[in-house]
Each structure stands twice: as C-alpha cells, then as structure tokens.
Design a protein around this nucleic acid. Structure first.
Length: 218
DNA sequence: GGCCAGGACACCA
DNA sequence: TGGTGTCATGGC
C-alpha cells in the first residue's frame, strides 16, 4: 500500500514537475497565506498579500499594530474579509502574548504540541494548522484538503465519508515520513485537482491516473 | 449568471 | 455527533 501513494506521487511529479510550494518569501508570509486562502482561490489571496506588502505590514509588528477594520479592507480580495481579519488578529495576539511576536520560538515547540496550540486559536482548524506546521515550520506532517479527499475517493483508496484526520493518517501511514515528500505531494494533488478533478467532473479526465479512477461523481 | 475556490465556526436537532 | 447556514470576492 505504501508503494501505491508513492507511485502516485512519482507519477504526478513526472507529469507536473516540482510545484515549489508554499508560495511565500518568509515563514510568516506562509502563515498569513494559509489563513487567507481558506476556501479561497490563491489568485485572490495574492492580491491581498500584495496589499499588505505595499503597506509594509506583512510582518509580525505590522499586523499586530494595525486596526482590525483597516486590515479587513486591505484583504478584501481574499473574500470573507471580516472573518479573516479577525482570524489574523487572533493569531497575532496569540503570537505576541506567548512569544513576543517571535515565530521561531513558537515553531520550536514539539510538533504535536504545536498542533494543539494552533488549533486553540480561533479561526485555525486542522488543515490550516497542518499547512502552517508543514510549509512554515517545516514539520513532517501531511496536509489533507478537499482535493485530497476527492482524488483519493475517486481512486477508491478511501471512503467518501472519511474525515480530515482519517485522510491525514492514511497519507502519513502510506508515505515515507518526509517533509519534502509531504510538501510536494500535497501541492501536486492540488495541481491535479485544479486541472482534472474539479467538483463537477466525475473522473480525472485525461490524466495518467484516469485508469485508476472510478467513474462516479462525488 | 451560476459555479467554484488550497476552511472554520456557530447553531440546531 | 452530524447536518446546515454563514462568511464574500473574483475568475471562468
């Protein structure tokens, strides 16, 4: 079974090439992007990030100081902007109250404790917490998302009703525990999902995995 | 003009 | 515990 997911990883890597995830110049930028991209296309997030950079506040001090309502207007393009502004401020408050704004200190905590801590912050759920751990902190944890579920399900690897932790556990048990592979595989699954496994497409049309897909709509 | 996008939370039965 | 509604912009 372990060979199975790794084979898919290798197939996708050969097909699409390295994805160079996560887009972001610093770990802090990755954290902000992970929150902003919740249920939102990355293209819309890029505009919001560009606005924050333009204002010179894409750093811990800048986002800690800015007023929540003012922040909401700057990230408007990312959608759900009021909710996301609150989420960003909740994270910043936590970071300053516990680590004096030092992200490295936060990331130095044991991986499991870091997850629990991130989940305790309002607005950070399982996927965002794991995205932060993998792509910002470099921890070897798998990030499952809607594309992972759709693709695994269509390949018949998991049941459609599987939850987030089930997807994550399945992936981690069937792949080498390697941050580089977890990083690339998640990015490749998103790439595949965007191009070939959209919600309204019943199968992964045209891709190398087509033979393995079951012709059913989920 | 409808569907969808790199989720999470609140509320209710 | 599981299902549903809400948050919202922008590309296709």
């Amino acid at each position: 079974m372990k060979k199975d997911l790794l084979e898919i990883h290798d197939d996708l890597l050969a097909r699409f090439g390295p994805q160079h995830w996560w887009p972001g110049d610093t770990p802090f930028e990755v954290v902000i992007g992970a929150i902003l991209t919740q249920s939102t296309s990355w293209r819309n997030v890029e505009r919001a990030i560009a606005n924050l950079k333009k204002q010179g506040i894409l750093n811990p001090e800048g986002l800690h100081r800015i007023d929540e309502k003012e922040l909401a207007l700057l990230i408007k393009s990312a959608g759900y902007y009021n909710a996301k502004a609150r989420k960003l401020k909740e994270f910043m408050n936590h970071l300053y109250q516990n680590y004096d704004g030092d992200l490295d200190r936060m990331f130095s905590r044991p991986t499991d404790e870091l997850r629990q801590e991130l989940l305790s912050i309002w607005g950070i759920g399982p996927e965002t917490a794991d995205s932060i751990r993998l792509y910002a902190a470099g921890k070897p944890v798998f990030v499952a998302d809607a594309y992972t579920k759709r693709i695994y399900s269509r390949l018949g690897l998991v049941d459609e009703g599987i939850d987030y932790d089930g997807l994550k556990d399945y992936s981690e048990k069937n792949l080498p525990r390697d941050a580089v592979i977890f990083n690339e595989f998640h990015a490749l699954l998103v790439k595949l999902g965007k191009e070939h496994c959209r919600k309204t497409k019943p199968v992964c049309c045209g891709c190398q995995l087509e033979k393995r897909c079951r012709k059913r709509k989920i």
